[in-house]
Every structure is written in C-alpha cells, then in structure tokens.
Amino acid sequence: MLSEVLQGTEPGGFVIIRDTACYSGRRLLKYYINCALKRGEAVHVLGFEVPEHELCAKLDSSCLNLFHFHNAYTDPLGWTKQSSFTVQHFSATGVTQLLQETQHAKTSVLVIDSLSFIVRHHDPVVVCQELQKLRKGGSVRMIFGLLHMDLHQQGVLGALSHLACTVISVTPGNIARYAVANTSQRKKSGKVMQKEEFFTLTEDLTLSIETKPNQSGKAQADLHTESEVDPMSNLTFNLRLSEVEREAKEKVALPFVFSEKKKSALLSQGRGSGRIMYEPDANDDFDEEDPDDDLDV
C-alpha cells in the first residue's frame, strides 16, 4: 500500500506521515517528493525543520527545476525579518498566493515539513480548517505532511488524522534493516483499508517492501509450525476420553434430570397429599375490600 499512495488521482488528497523520535519519517517523505518530481509534477515544500540542501539531497537532479523550497527554516517565527515565509503566514490564502507566484500555473503537490511545527504555533482547529480549504481550493492536487506523534496529545493527532485520506505511521521494526509502516487509507466511497508492511528505504531513495520479511528463514517457519502444534500435548493430565470412558459417561444419569416415572410420581397428587388450611380468627383484622389496610402506606 505504500507504493499505491501516490496513485490516487482524485484532487484534494491529503497524506500524513506520522513518526516518532525512534524512527524519522522524513526519508519516506523525500521518497514521495522524488516520485512526484519524476512524474513531472511541481512540488512546493514549506520547510520549517531542515534546510533546503538537506531535503534536496539524493533527489533526482534532472527534475530539480520543479522543486520549490519556501524557506521557513532560517527564520521560522519571523524574529529577524529575513524570511519571506514564516509560520504566521500559514493559511489557505497565504499558501495559495505563494504557489501562484511561481511560473508553474498548474496544480502542484504541497509538502509541509512539518505539520508539528505549525500546530505548535497555531490553534489545531484553525490548522484543520485551513488544510480543508487548501484541499477544496483546487490549487494543490495533493498534500503531504509530516507529523511527530510524540509531540502532541491524542486529541490533536486524532483530529488531523481524521482529516487525512491516508495516514502512514512508521515505527522501527524488530527485524534488522526493516521499519514498519501501518497504513490506513479511506477511499472516496467511505471504505477504509488498513495494511501493515515492512520496508527498507536506502540513502538513494530506493524503496523495498515486504509483507512479512524472513529473519534467516525463521519467521516463515514459526508461522508454519504454530498452526500444527497440539496445545494439549504437554499437559500433566489427560483431557481426552477413550471409547469405553465415553460410553460410561453417557450412561451416567445427571442429578437434575428426572425420568418419566419420577416426573409422574411427583406431579400426581395421591390420597395422602398434604394441604395447608387457614381459618382467620377474630383477632385477624382482615378487610376483604382493602387487603392492604394494615400496611402503613
């Protein structure tokens, strides 16, 4: 599913890559940037966390004329007034105007590196509203955003993730060289697809994906033997019955199951069956019209 994320053709696609301090999702973000450049799409990056030369490293050099880095890294908060774009300029109107100032008039791919920096300096509700306007405005075909999960509360993460059509959560894997990507994709029809994949991404942005990688052949063997292991083989007592024991068990009468003969004997009233007779005396203040007269109600 990782390789299928960029195949979405409907406008307004929004992809969030969620990472933590244990594993960075920026290299995966660069992979998607490189793929978009190779397809001939203009890519606009709002860069807050890394400089341009670091983000451009290993990208296809023949397509860098389509790469536009809007530098918010040098002065992200506008303290020195040296940057034309700061975090305060983030809005649907401001970003749209920034994209229209370039020579490429066609729709572009917008990359936000990172959403975490914007959310820390804006109301999360406002950020969601502006992102929704960008999606519906038609100025961008697709939005990619990097979000650091360990910097935000669950409510903020949930609101941003609900807005996205695809959420990719990357974590380090237990198997060497591999990382784990849990992808949740919501189709236009409302259907949600989820998949866990193991992947490697080299320095030259070559992506390799496996559904379940082998660990020296051990992983596949464990899955195969796990289904054949008898869970009762190592018990200190026997849970199985022989044929003789099963026949003896079936002949034992259960304590609360009565035979037909015993049922009829209990239900039929014989001559000596007992009855309770009660005759009220004079001290019984019983009123037939109000039987509950003696109750204090």
Rank of each mutant, 00 (worst) to 15 (best):
L77Y: 10
V5N: 00
A179S: 15
S108A: 15
A105Y: 14
Q88H: 04
V156G: 02
L37K: 00
L59I: 07
I118M: 12
L151P: 10
H44I: 14
Q7P: 01
Y23V: 07
L66G: 09
E196V: 10
F14Y: 04
L37G: 03
K251P: 03
F48I: 02
T202G: 06
G274A: 12
D230L: 08
E54K: 13
R141G: 14
L151W: 15
A176N: 15
G138Q: 09
T80V: 13
A265P: 07
S189H: 02
Q154W: 13
H104Y: 13
E210M: 12
E243K: 09
V167E: 00
I112W: 01
F90A: 02
D150K: 02
A282V: 05
L266G: 00
F48G: 03
T236M: 08
A253R: 09
S264Q: 15
Y278C: 14
K191F: 13
E250G: 09
P280F: 05
R186A: 04
D284C: 09
R27V: 09
A265C: 05
N174R: 14
Q82I: 01
G94E: 06
A72R: 01
P231S: 07
R120K: 15
A176F: 14
A219L: 08
V127R: 01
L98Y: 13
F67E: 07
E52Q: 14
H148Q: 13
F256T: 00
S189M: 00
K188L: 12
S139H: 08
K187P: 03
L131A: 02
E52I: 10
Q194L: 08
K191L: 11
E54Q: 11
S91R: 02
S268Y: 11
N234A: 06
N238L: 09
A179P: 10
L59F: 06
A92E: 07
L110H: 00
P231M: 07
G270N: 07
F286K: 04
Y278N: 07
S216I: 05
T200G: 02
